[in-house]
Amino acid sequence: MLRLARKRWLFRAFRKRRELRNVADRTSAISHDAILVFSTLRNERFRLPFFLRYYREMGVNHFLIVDNDSDDGSREYLAEQPDVSLWTTRHSYKRARFGVDWLNWLQMKYGHNHWCLVVDPDEFFVYPFCDIRPLRALTDWLDASSIKSFSAMLLDMYPKGPFDAQPYHEGQDPFEIAQWFDSGNYTIQRNRKYGNLWIQGGPRARMFFPDLPERAPALNKVPLVRWNRSYAYASSTHMLLPRGLNQVYDEWGGEKASGVLLHAKFLDTFAHKAEEEMERRQHYANSHEYRAYRLAMAKQPDL
């Protein structure tokens, strides 16, 4: 059954390729051992300089980005970058299963046999020894250990005090502002069907969903995968098929290596973004997440 589901996602991605219009194609510069970043974004111009710098310094060789109809100059900025290949689309983010279909297609086409990192522009990958070893040290080690996928749960970072107390400047490290995180209030369940863990909790569950914890957003992610064109993300980067790739945790008491995606969502730009996303209604489950944010934000935006 899961095989059928995977084929369906792949076929869907194949159909959705028509929605993408190429803006800058530098994919011929991708060498056979390049590490690739895939991303979908909309109106993230301010975040992009630091985003690109962060991953370049980590050792990422090429960025493949889908721009979902930005009007703040993101597209123009990205098109100029020497290591970015850019596609743009005006089609519905929601109907592309929140961008997954678009990226599945690009990964199918360009990601085969590469280490692929799928992140949003506000997600910053951290892994063991990332302060002293480049990303290639990790991927080489994963190769040597015959590990195909690497987990990194989403960790929501937030500033002390109201979000808008410290404005974010272009190019700035967002974690100079958002320095805080919840260290130990996460719940974990196993999804028997797909074999992945379902992690919830953190400040978003605590602040926005204290009475409806089952609706709190999922934090488990598997963003780094040695891609094969027959793989597919089933739901954002939370779940993969074939489901063996979701087996990023040890069941017999041991600990596997894992990373973290630092989530710089809660900056001064957040309130504005939440408003905008509510109007577009392009997010998961009728944007209930953003609705909850807006309600809570109206009261006291201090995590």
Partner: peptide, 23 residues
């Protein structure tokens, strides 16, 4: 040892022991 036995009482994204395998 950490890879095979892990830290007792820690449940996280890369350690989710089956029941009675928690050490």
């Amino acid at each position: 040892e950490r890879r095979t036995k892990g830290r007792a009482g820690l449940y996280m994204q890369s350690r989710h022991p089956n029941e009675n395998w928690e050490n």
